[in-house]
Write a protein that binds this DNA or RNA. Structure first.
Lengths: 193, 193
DNA sequence: CTTGTAGCAGAATGATCATTCTGGTATCGT
DNA sequence: ACGATACCAGAATGATCATTCTGCTACAAG
């Protein structure tokens, strides 16, 4: 049996994710990662190959740790507007628990900072946004949005969500975000009625 | 007549702004700035003090060069929903002319990349968002939004706008952005009716 | 022409940082 | 106990980069 393995690969990427998420890619040094993960430089390099590769490995981890818990209810068959509102509230209270201004959305942050210089990151961002849009679209269909408008409205929800996580990096009071969400959900309900 | 003065302070900050805007703060080196501005290191340091100060000087310049032309119509007394839509279209076609994926919004980019580490940048971002919200709020009042909801709806418009500029860094087709705007404006009209 | 000045290019400096390497230590199977 | 293995701490390396410094050039006033 191998060493106690105080650090599984999951632990490692989880801690690295949290570091990158809060501070961004450039502002995170290998020292920060060594400290945050408790894994030696050698360990990181042999497991991943380098800083950039570790960063890329954080995307699937973010999906499991953050996107799935928050978004799977929207993807469930039969989900509707309530589940969309639930997604927003889920993320806002998570940010609130961590302390605002919060880290925002790891993917959206990477879209701004890294994607313009890195095609692989760009692809990961596009995949994430596509997933959100598909989930929202299906829920909007269920809620009665006319088929011809479903995709456009879903894209609008994605746009709003992106803005919300961006503002959550700047805002101190979660209720500011909640009021925006409530207003936006009102607008959505107004359409569907 | 003084030296040809190929570079006024306005030229300098304008070119620096464009460089920071596209590449971000960290990814822009002093060499990039020297090349982009045509001003020597010595010139930059004696005029501004350093990279960070030059970056801060880009915020007023962005206001003059980008925000005022695009947003002043919204701030005009009597502006309404059409002017809000005009603001979005103005920015989208500017981004399109520069080539998508575009640089997004300089302030929003800075909010994600720099504001978490720099209080002065955070303040500049908050001031910008406040200005947008005030402008939108007044236009919404004019459009007939009930007073009790004006600020909340204006905050929602700011959120949507922030998301739009964020997505404009990732999207290749301006019409994707235009469809989101059209849908969002529909939602706003639906409220005001 | 001479001298002063403004502003340039590019070298020197010092710091930071990703990556690689070296040596040590603890744990496990035998 | 003994060797092997997995992993760690931290030093060495090499690159990058902000900042400072040095010397040069071109213009202008006298």
């Amino acid at each position: 049996m191998p060493r106690p393995k105080s650090h599984t690969q999951e632990d490692l990427t989880e801690r690295a994710l949290k570091t990158f998420w809060r501070a961004g890619y450039e502002a995170t040094s290998m020292d920060d990662l060594v400290t945050a993960t408790g894994v030696s430089r050698h360990g990181i390099y042999s497991a991943f190959g380098g800083k950039r590769e570790l960063f890329l490995a954080c995307f699937p981890r973010y999906r499991e740790l953050v996107v799935r818990p928050a978004f799977s209810a929207v993807e469930e068959p039969g989900a509707g507007l309530a589940e969309i509102a639930g997604y927003f509230e889920h993320q806002i209270s998570a940010a609130e628990a961590q302390g605002l201004p919060g880290p925002g959305c790891f993917v959206a942050n990477s879209a701004t900072e890294v994607a313009p210089h890195d095609a692989e990151v760009l692809a990961a961002v596009a995949a994430h946004n596509g997933r959100l849009q598909r989930g929202f679209a299906e829920a909007l269909r269920t809620a009665g949005e006319p088929e011809g408008e479903v995709e456009a409205v879903a894209a609008t929800v994605v746009t709003f969500a992106t803005g919300l996580w961006s503002l959550s990096r700047v805002v101190e009071d979660a209720d500011v975000l909640r009021r925006s969400v409530a207003t936006f959900m009102d607008m959505l309900k107004g359409r569907v009625r």
